[in-house]
């Protein structure tokens, strides 16, 4: 049984009956963390798309770093949500019986779309040539790992590589609205709660998006700086 001492402490100050939610913040630090992490994902992806779609040459060295940052934070973004559930072992119910009117249930599908169709695919197409080369060069477990990551497609002819590049570009073009959808939807989860006047606003998705772009680009810049300074060595991210 969870610790209830704070509830009893509060009960001394009231006459009669109160609800526990009168004295507890039910969405606490973990729920704050989750839109923050998703925002970093969306922002990092926008930075990557700057190079691919809008041809901003200056950010080219950060392209792969930005994609990998997005993937890393995408994978851990559900963790704070999961650990905030009172019954974390029942999380599968969201996927098995999603309630279509619930913004939270539909976010599961937005998340899956972004992770599977946008991020993983783009990274796979971008790294496919490298996976094939590495699987030939390395030994032991690394060789096995890279062979699995090639998904058994070892064709790295000129034509295949050109197709990969076209695929990456197409996915990035789909990916920009998807990144907006991903984080705008997080804003919608909060903005659709009419009961809370501080949240209930149509501007919520926009507010979330802009803070996401700012914080995501800042994060990639920070990681780029740190990874080049400590240990001091040449920049090696995607300079080709």
């Amino acid at each position: 049984m969870p610790d209830q001492s704070h509830l009893y402490e509060a009960l001394k100050h009231v006459v009669g009956y109160i609800y526990p939610n009168d004295i507890e913040a039910h969405w606490s630090i973990l729920i704050v963390l989750y839109p923050y992490l998703t925002g970093l994902v969306a922002g990092a992806f926008i930075l990557a798309s700057l190079e691919r779609v809008f041809n901003v040459r200056e950010v080219r060295p950060t392209y792969r770093l930005a994609l990998l940052t997005a993937l890393a934070f995408m994978l851990i973004a559900p963790l704070p949500l999961l650990s905030h559930l009172a019954k974390p072992l029942r999380f599968w119910e969201i996927l098995v019986t999603p309630h279509l009117t619930s913004a939270m249930a539909m976010f599961g599908f937005v998340y899956m779309w972004y992770l599977m169709v946008v991020l993983l695919l783009e990274i796979w197409f971008d790294y496919r040539r490298d996976f094939v080369v590495w699987s030939r060069e390395s030994k032991g477990f690394k060789k096995f790992l890279y062979s699995v990551l090639t998904l058994g497609v070892t064709d790295i002819s000129e034509k295949a590589i050109r197709f990969d590049e076209a695929a990456v570009k197409t996915i990035t073009i789909i990916g920009i609205p998807s990144a907006f959808l991903l984080h705008g939807y997080v804003g919608f989860i909060f903005g659709s709660i009419k009961a809370n006047p501080w949240w209930s606003s149509v501007l919520m998705p926009v507010i979330f998006l802009f803070s996401a772009i700012v914080s995501g680009i800042a994060l990639v810049m920070l990681i780029y700086l740190l990874s080049n300074k400590i240990p001091p060595r040449q920049a090696e991210h995607g300079v080709s």
Partner: peptide, 22 residues
């Protein structure tokens, strides 16, 4: 069947939903 996400607690305009501590 409840997973304890507390979305309903936030959504209730009358503040009558709560997480049962027991």
């Amino acid at each position: 069947y409840c997973i304890g996400c507390r979305y309903c607690i936030q959504a209730c305009p009358y503040g009558t939903r709560f997480l049962n501590p027991i």
